[in-house]
Design a protein around this nucleic acid. Structure first.
Lengths: 110, 110
DNA sequence: CGGGATCCAGAATGATACTG
DNA sequence: CAGTATCATTCTGGATCCCG
């Protein structure tokens, strides 16, 4: 089972990005590096655990870079890598579609 | 200006499209209408149940249209609505990103 | 053919407590 | 501050049987 898929590029992308938070996290990294708790405040409703897990997944995929500054207490910064910048159009398009969705909802069922 | 709706737009979009199959189903509807079992064959590995559920969700969101032809046995066709065509850029961008992902994998882990 | 209904396994996510 | 560990809950997806 799970042999390589034929032409399922969309499936591959969704397997990595399809979670509830990942693209949202990336969204908040568009403007520059962010620290862990900074992201936690930005991303509405995410748990500490999921933030950790999703950051790890994105890091493992080479899309973000984790930098530890040996301050006291320690400071950790996350930022998009060059590869990660390939996510910019993905986020943008999702943002636009989501915006349209929300505006449509307002118009139909207030 | 509801700042309360900070940027749930990405979240909103992912809530609707974030599943494993939905964008993939939409992908196979880009070229035109498809019947149920036709989609089942196209979408690699999807179960009948999930195809039904996801088609329902997309229909409820007004993104696809379900048409029943009273043949014997019955024939059901699914197609993108005008609203659903807003998904075209979303699918395209996912497809491109997935393609890049797959090509990168090939290059790294032979 | 195109589903609906039910049951179930596993993955995804959340809550809470603890730590260097 | 930035996590880890553990447990609980919810969600996703598959298997199977049934029906008009």
């Amino acid at each position: 089972m799970k042999e390589s898929v034929t032409n399922c590029t969309v499936e591959e992308a969704m397997r990595l990005l399809g979670g509830r938070w990942r693209l949202l996290i990336v969204y908040f990294l568009l403007d520059g590096p962010r620290r862990f708790n900074e992201l936690r405040r930005c991303v509405p409703g995410i748990s500490q655990r999921m933030l950790t897990l999703d950051l790890r997944a994105l890091e493992e995929a080479g899309l973000i870079k984790r930098t530890v500054f040996p301050t006291v207490p320690v400071t950790v910064e996350y930022q998009l890598t060059e590869d990660g910048k390939r996510l910019v159009p993905v986020v943008k398009v999702m943002q636009e579609f989501g915006k349209w969705l929300l505006e449509r909802e307002e118009g139909e069922a207030p």
